[in-house]
């Protein structure tokens, strides 16, 4: 009886703790996201347009059916997926490798880390316009270097062959530091024994990297990859400033497509349906990713 009483006391204590710790975050997020979500969902079932706000009709799934029938939607989806997969893959590889190298370095570490974080620190508007200047075919510094090296100058942002590559270069420049920073934090919080033991056993640096660093860092890499993918999937500013989706619609992502309909054509219902489709795709992919990698629940829990 006595033991049972203490168990109940413990459970009560535990539940109170859980609720109190989660409360502030929950209130804020419900308050901020529930209303916008419901509004966009409802809008996506209407033909609401700012051009004729008085005559809005409920059209159920018409926006979605229209979307599925349009080639432009499928092209935008393909562009978005290609951009997200390539950019995030390159960034994860670079981020993990350079975080590990920096973690093992012992001179000028502070300076190097600061230099690595600069792309994340500079105002993106200024950085993106600087890239536009550097990519300029006639007066840009990139073609200047190409000529110095005896290579063919490129039209970069204006050419179908290089527009996507240019965007991925800029995105990689800006966002690799994000992955690097998370991995640095992860490396700093890992126990050092496995690394020391491997060194004593005479493992090579490459073996340590593949057999110990990457597996131990895996939860951090997974999270960095997840967040970077979620953000890359809805990239807007870089693409809008550099190519505006061109040449033609070769770099027009879903987000730019939605922007075009929502802000330029003012048909908020249609734009809303694109946003909801993007949300559904992200939720499905994220669920699969998290389940496969067992990142949804903690590995172990506290027992009193």
């Amino acid at each position: 009886m006595q033991g049972c009483f203490f168990m109940n006391q413990f459970r009560k204590e535990r539940n109170k703790f859980i609720i109190l710790m989660l409360m502030p975050a929950t209130i804020l997020l419900v308050g901020l996201t529930l209303f916008p979500f419901i509004v966009s969902l409802i809008l996506s079932f209407t033909d609401y347009s700012l051009l004729r706000p008085g005559q809005t009709k409920f059209i159920f799934l018409d926006n979605y059916i229209e979307l599925m029938k349009t080639d432009e939607f499928w092209i935008a989806l393909r562009v978005t997926v290609v951009f997200t997969v390539l950019a995030v893959f390159i960034q994860v590889v670079l981020g993990v490798v350079f975080a590990t190298l920096l973690h093992n370095e012992n001179s000028n570490v502070s300076l190097l880390r600061t230099l690595y974080l600069l792309p994340l620190a500079i105002t993106p508007i200024a950085a993106t316009f600087t890239f536009r200047l550097m990519f300029n075919p006639s007066l840009g510094v990139l073609n200047y270097f190409m000529k110095l090296l005896g290579l063919e100058p490129q039209a970069w942002l204006a050419s179908p062959n290089t527009a996507m590559i240019s965007l991925i270069i800029v995105d990689t420049w800006q966002w690799t530091p994000f992955i690097l920073l998370i991995c640095l934090g992860g490396l700093a919080s890992l126990p050092s024994e496995p690394f020391e033991a491997a060194k004593v056993d005479g493992a090579s640096s490459w073996q340590i990297f593949t057999k110990i660093t990457v597996p131990m860092l895996y939860p951090f890499i997974g999270l960095a990859l997840l967040f970077r993918s979620i953000d890359a999937f809805k990239t807007f500013d870089i693409i809008y400033v550099l190519t505006s989706g061109g040449p033609g619609i070769l770099t027009r992502t879903l987000n730019l497509y939605a922007f075009k309909h929502g802000i330029e054509f003012l048909s908020m219902g249609y734009a809303g349906s694109i946003a909801i489709v993007m949300l559904i795709i992200t939720i499905v992919v994220a669920q699969i990713f998290l389940r496969k990698n067992k990142l949804l629940l903690p590995k172990d829990t506290l027992k009193g």
């Binding site: 979500f37 967040f227 979620i230 879903l254 929502g262 994220a286």
Partner: peptide, 12 residues
């Protein structure tokens, strides 16, 4: 909590 980051800004 994670899904609150997924909504494209245009909808928010």
């Amino acid at each position: 909590i994670l899904s609150t980051r997924m909504t494209p800004p245009i909808a928010m």
